[in-house]
Design a protein around this nucleic acid. Structure first.
Length: 152
DNA sequence: GCCAACGTTGGC
DNA sequence: GCCAACGTTGGC
């Protein structure tokens, strides 16, 4: 079982949106980066856990925990010309982009802000806070996972 | 809004 | 394959 960090902009899709789903489950659509795609397609498995990180907002930080409930499968929004995630270079026979399904587990007791994550020496090596890392899906070690939750 | 740090595209 | 131009991300 693996741990992950998944980023989203709360103005687009945040923890409240996921929690509001009838099944508290949703597709993680719209990832259009090859490195992140490879993780979605090849590495994420049902039962894996992911921290949800809110980016591009007043208080960027980790806000909750999600569980991966379906392994990678083709991101159908890439096939839909009406979707903002449409990509004409992806088609059902040769899908370029993938997604997983995630289920809301819980909110953290508080948002753990990026400033605090950066200030924690135990997290110096975690991809989330390494400068310039813009991946929307990142692995996190079990040790770093625990170190983050210890800050809750 | 600014700008650093990327990733992608396309000419050659 | 190189690399300049361009687009995007995301903190601040």
């Amino acid at each position: 079982m693996s741990y992950w960090v998944m980023k989203s902009e709360p103005s687009v899709y945040g923890i409240d949106d996921l929690a509001a789903q009838p099944s508290q489950t949703d597709h993680w659509e719209g990832v259009r980066n090859y490195q992140a795609r490879n993780m979605l397609r090849d590495q994420m498995r049902p039962g894996d856990l992911a921290l949800l990180y809110h980016s591009n907002c007043p208080q960027p930080g980790v806000v909750g925990i999600m569980e991966i409930v379906r392994a990678g499968y083709p991101d159908h929004t890439a096939f839909d010309p009406e979707s903002k995630y449409f990509d004409p270079k992806s088609d059902p026979d040769r899908p370029r982009w993938y997604m997983v399904d995630v289920r809301f587990k819980r909110r953290l007791a508080r948002t753990i802000p990026l400033t605090e994550l950066k200030a924690n020496p135990a997290l110096a090596e975690t991809p989330l806070i390494r400068r310039g890392n813009r991946l929307s899906i990142m692995p996190v070690s079990a040790e770093h996972w625990q170190a983050i939750l210890d800050m809750e």
